[in-house]
Design a protein around this nucleic acid. Sequence first.
DNA 1: TCGTGCAGAGAGGTCAGACCTCACGGAAAC
DNA 2: GTTTCCGTGAGGTCTGACCTCTCTGCACGA
Lengths: 254, 254
Amino acid sequence: MRNQTARSREERLTMQVVNHIRAMIEDGRLKPGDKIPPEREFARMLKISRASLRTGIGYLAAMGVMKVRHGVGTFVADGPPEIGKASLGLMGALHGFQPWQMFEARLLLESSLAALAAERGKEEHLTVLAEEVAEMYATVDDPQEYLIHDVRFHRTIAQASGNPILAALMETVTSTLYEERRKTVEYARNLKESAETHREIYRAIRSKNGAEARKLMAEHLRVAQSEQERETQAGALERELTPRLKARRTKSQS
Amino acid sequence: MRNQTARSREERLTMQVVNHIRAMIEDGRLKPGDKIPPEREFARMLKISRASLRTGIGYLAAMGVMKVRHGVGTFVADGPPEIGKASLGLMGALHGFQPWQMFEARLLLESSLAALAAERGKEEHLTVLAEEVAEMYATVDDPQEYLIHDVRFHRTIAQASGNPILAALMETVTSTLYEERRKTVEYARNLKESAETHREIYRAIRSKNGAEARKLMAEHLRVAQSEQERETQAGALERELTPRLKARRTKSQS
DNA sequence: TCGTGCAGAGAGGTCAGACCTCACGGAAAC
DNA sequence: GTTTCCGTGAGGTCTGACCTCTCTGCACGA
């Protein structure tokens, strides 16, 4: 990787930066959580201007591969993999994605994920699932808190499936839905019932019953979908009846 | 009545640009294929420096929402939606994605997509599918050309499913696999048989037999996976046996 | 008439360096 | 011991000049 000026005519500097970092990741010089050199220094090392380096880093950041923290530094992402998470919203606006399509995608992914988790789930995953279920029961009166464990439960199943790609795809779809849910979960009812359902899913996975886990998960998500629709409506209704909350400008409500 | 300037604390300029363009897309001022104003002019309009504007555009380009063409202009993407396509490779290097996981994800998505296509496919989609199958038969002796129609066939099924989100997810996974395939397809055999399989899938979809379509597609992809593995091996083997390709001077070895 | 080639305009790509803002940690003040 | 303040390092933004790529249209020659 000396001077590969040969391909310079084909590759913009942005891509050179991306490829350089990609190479560093591939041969282990960079691992999730690592910090890359300061921009000024790195730019000098690569013999390019800081502006160009920043373009490349911006590209990687947009894809979720790097995480930039103002005043601190730039790091390699270390959380659960997310594929083009931020773009789903944009693509949605661009191509007119419908909510039901989102749910359909989720249903498909998660029910299969549950089945895989039942087949391949390790003891450690089962433990976490059990804990999250317990937490759900314990927080049925605190919707926001409940939601956190709900999300974790589903995320753990995704991990237990043993396929990080599918897990990442699920994360992509779910995160958008989750944003919406956080605003409406206050209007939820039957959280107890919801916890009950999660427990059943857990039991199916624990007993390695893939078919059952798939079926329960699918059903759970169907219920969740109609529940979400109801909550959204309830939220909209209340906001209409009590506009005193704040004349906050709802920037977009689809 | 705080304007957007109030949020400068919270939102980096990059995001302002992204949100501005997002808004333009959402209210229809921008549609796929449209060209945005030249950077210098646009920057003046938004009252920010060209550098910042470029950062924002770079972000959108990275996510596949915009397409930048040197010397020509910047456009809103107009092809089939792709979610974080470019990032899959990076994420793979970062989290160690395995080929079998890629195939598993594909199998899951495409078999369901085929089932949905059987249920919802419109006449126009069926027509295209039929054409592609015909083209496949016609190009069994030209692997590269065959591949093109192969890809189109699968893409059309995705479109026919009526769920652009799932289609986009499939596109994300498949494009990576496709890159690999293009290099090894030369070593393919049984393209005729492959065309036959596609035809059967088409027939299942045409007769609105979702279950059958799902089953055939799943089977097809399993075969495709092992075939890919064989081709890769064949390719590697040949490259090993004939290292002369690199030695410029073909000193009459044949 | 037709084709070729080249120059100019428009638009994105890169650069350099100065200055702003933020996060953090250690020193000074209380 | 706790709190406050400020220096340092790192990312964020700006300016404006210059480079490179595309496309187009006109002039020239076959």
